[in-house]
Design a binder for these strands. Structure first.
Lengths: 200, 200
DNA sequence: TAAAATCGTTACCATTTATCAAGGAAATTT
DNA sequence: AAATTTCCTTGATAAATGGTAACGATTTTA
């Protein structure tokens, strides 16, 4: 149940058995089925969620009904709405299940308690945000100036796992293009491959 | 010299006089003039930089020579290349001075030492990355699905300070549009304003 | 102060991407 | 198994944005 969590934590910090047991007591397991919501827009987010198994994604919906995909989350990833968590304002995000999930949730009050009891857990939190920040910075770099085709290729190269587990119209929402455009791009790409490199 | 730094830190965590003195000893002051580089692509970034006074920006340059603006930094902000800092790989970013700067730099080894000596400083680092993460998440949300005009209006509303201190072609690079497009957008907007709301 | 570089704008045309509409394949539900 | 929904694709057209070039205005440099 907590295998992936501690694998993930131990990649970044050292934790004694005792510390691991303390941490364990504050995480609450939760199962969700496909299409269920972990968070609905309008609710305040007050837990961070670790994915032991399954897949989810967070998104906002604009006036036209277009989904803007903020994040996907698979095994070993964290998901939540840090803005709502910080400000206590109602979230503008939905977090929805893509594949049946085994989750571990930590209430933000308990997170603060854990920071005190297990300083290494706060170190982990810092490192986690640091990584998440880098991830987003790279994503922004990939969004700025890249054409839709280049963005898709970037995803294909850097995060192929997303392509294999997420429907294309959500990937379109992640890249900021329409599903139709993404479909056309993929069509073009497959037509380029067949006979190796045409210029040889 | 360290006024803004401690103002900024004390907004998030408590620090005794002693702790403040310890922190002070690890930060190295540095002055840079307009157009000088804090970091050049190819160099490894091993310091984080706090801006006491002035303005800088970080960017990458693609094959076509287009600048992708990653970040601006003004008084009270941090700047660096966290990816290069983490991986020790040569940075792909340039960090250049926009307005003469008074900076405070912390070497990453000293940052680790500070985390041990002053735990509250690590707490601050966590909070800082948390805020930075939220900032980027909002930026991504604004980039996805928003038209160039909407992106500009978003910037105008949320970060007007940027508009007042940064040349327009850099703002274009920040929004991911060409300077020409941004110019056209601004032109359209000024033509809409004149007689209040035309539908009244 | 003269020369050079930077910055912002505009015009024209090309390209990319979105939008609207329709239809088929596959998965899910009944 | 039939019906429904979801997912992906394709075509035709419209809208948004980019690329190139040229022009002053301003700032910086010599």
């Amino acid at each position: 149940m907590y295998e992936i969590l501690f694998e993930t934590l131990l990649e970044e910090v050292s934790l004694t058995r005792d510390e691991q047991d303390i941490i364990k007591t504050y995480f609450i397991p939760r199962k969700l089925k496909k299409r269920q919501f972990l968070l609905q827009a309008g609710d305040v987010c007050n837990r961070i969620t670790f994915v032991e198994k399954g897949a989810l994604y967070s998104y906002s919906t604009d006036e036209k009904g277009t989904q803007h995909i903020i994040q996907f989350a698979f095994e070993g990833w964290w998901i939540g709405d840090p803005y709502s968590l910080l400000t206590k304002e109602p979230s503008k995000l939905n977090i929805e299940v893509l594949e049946e999930c085994q989750l571990l949730q930590l209430h933000k009050d308990n997170e603060q308690i854990l920071f005190k009891k297990v300083p290494a857990f706060e170190t982990y939190a810092r490192i986690r945000f640091q990584h998440a920040f880098i991830f987003l910075q790279k994503r922004i770099e990939s969004i700025l100036g890249l054409s839709a085709e280049e963005k898709y290729n970037y995803l294909l190269k850097e995060y192929p796992v997303i392509l294999t587990r997420v429907p294309l119209h959500l990937i379109a929402g992640f890249l900021g293009v329409t599903p139709e455009s993404l479909s056309r791009i993929r069509n073009q790409l497959t037509q380029q491959i067949p006979g190796k490199n045409s210029s040889v």
